[in-house]
C-alpha cells in the first residue's frame, strides 16, 4: 500500500520527465472491465504502462509519412489502407486547410497506426489498457458509476459530426494525466479485432458458436456504460485497413 502511495507520488514527476512524445505513466492494477466474457471471471490484471497524453496529431503523422514514404497515401499498399486514407490532407505530403496541424489525425487505418507507433518504439494500447485509462475523470480513477460522468460522455454523441475537430489537448487531463480519451475521436486499439460482436448487437450473450468458434461469448456487463458499448460497436464494425473521419489513435509503451 505504501509502495502504491509512493508510486502515485512518483507518477506525476515521471510524467513530467517523459520525453518528446508526451507519455503519462499509468500504474495498472486490477480492473473490472465493462465487457463480460464467459471465460474471464473477476477482474483483469493490467500491468503498468505508459500512454500518450494526447492522440497523434496531423503534424506528427505528417513527419512520420515524410520519414517513411511507403506510408504516403499515394504509395501505401491498398491492403494496408483503403482509398480514403488521409484523404482530408491537401496532398500526399502536405496538410492543408482541412487538416490543421494540431487536430488529431483521422482517416488512418489500423496498419498505419501500428506502423507509426512502431516507429516511435511504441505500440497501440490494448482494449483493456484503453478502457482502464478511459474510466477516469479529472479527479477519480474510476468514474464509471457516476451518472453525471456518463451523461457528459453521451453528450458527445448528441453533437452533430459535421463540425471541425477540436485541437488535441483542450480537455482537462484525467486523473492519470491523459487527455481527450472521450469527446474527440474514436481510437484504434492493438486488439480491436478481438471484439467479436455479431453485426446484430441484440443477441447479447446468445453466442453463435459456429460463427465465432467456441465459447467465450461477449456480453455487456454494465449496460449503462454506453460509452463502452458504442466503442465496441464502432471498433467491431471495422476492418484493419478501414479509415473513418472520426477514428484516430494514440500509442502506448510497456514499462519495465
Amino acid at each position: 500500500m505504501r509502495r502504491l502511495a509512493a508510486m502515485l507520488l512518483l507518477i506525476p514527476l515521471a510524467g513530467l520527465a517523459a520525453g518528446a512524445a508526451d507519455y503519462a505513466q499509468l500504474p495498472g492494477g486490477n480492473f473490472r472491465t465493462a465487457l463480460k466474457y464467459e471465460d474471464r471471471k473477476g477482474a483483469t490484471r493490467i500491468a503498468p504502462f505508459a500512454l500518450m497524453r494526447k492522440p497523434v496529431t496531423n503534424a506528427e503523422f505528417l513527419a512520420f509519412v515524410r520519414s517513411q514514404p511507403q506510408w504516403r497515401r499515394d504509395r501505401v499498399a491498398r491492403v494496408f489502407a483503403e482509398p480514403r486514407y488521409l484523404s482530408h490532407w491537401t496532398s500526399a505530403d502536405a496538410l492543408g486547410a482541412k487538416a490543421l496541424p494540431q487536430q488529431p489525425v483521422v482517416q488512418v487505418s489500423w496498419f498505419a497506426a501500428q506502423a507509426y507507433c512502431e516507429a516511435q518504439n511504441a505500440r497501440l494500447p490494448s482494449w483493456d489498457e484503453w478502457e482502464y485509462a478511459a474510466a477516469a475523470d479529472e479527479t477519480r480513477r474510476d468514474a464509471r458509476r457516476d451518472p453525471a460522468w456518463r451523461e457528459r460522455i453521451l453528450r458527445w454523441y448528441s453533437h452533430p459530426s459535421n463540425q471541425a475537430l477540436a485541437r488535441t489537448g483542450l480537455q482537462a487531463p484525467n486523473a492519470y494525466g491523459v487527455q481527450d480519451l472521450h469527446g474527440l475521436v474514436w481510437e484504434w486499439t492493438e486488439d480491436f479485432s478481438s471484439l467479436l460482436v455479431a453485426g446484430d448487437n441484440r443477441n447479447q450473450g446468445d453466442a453463435d458458436n459456429a460463427k465465432f468458434c467456441g465459447a467465450g461469448a461477449l456480453s455487456m456487463d454494465d449496460r449503462d456504460n454506453y460509452a463502452v458499448l458504442m466503442r465496441v460497436a464502432m471498433l467491431s464494425s471495422l476492418n484493419a485497413e478501414d479509415t473513418t473521419a472520426n477514428m484516430g489513435f494514440r500509442c502506448a509503451k510497456d514499462l519495465k
Partner: peptide
Amino acid sequence: GVLGIRYRAL
C-alpha cells in the same frame, strides 16, 4: 488483419 480474420485468445 489482411485476411479479415477476427480472433481473441481465451
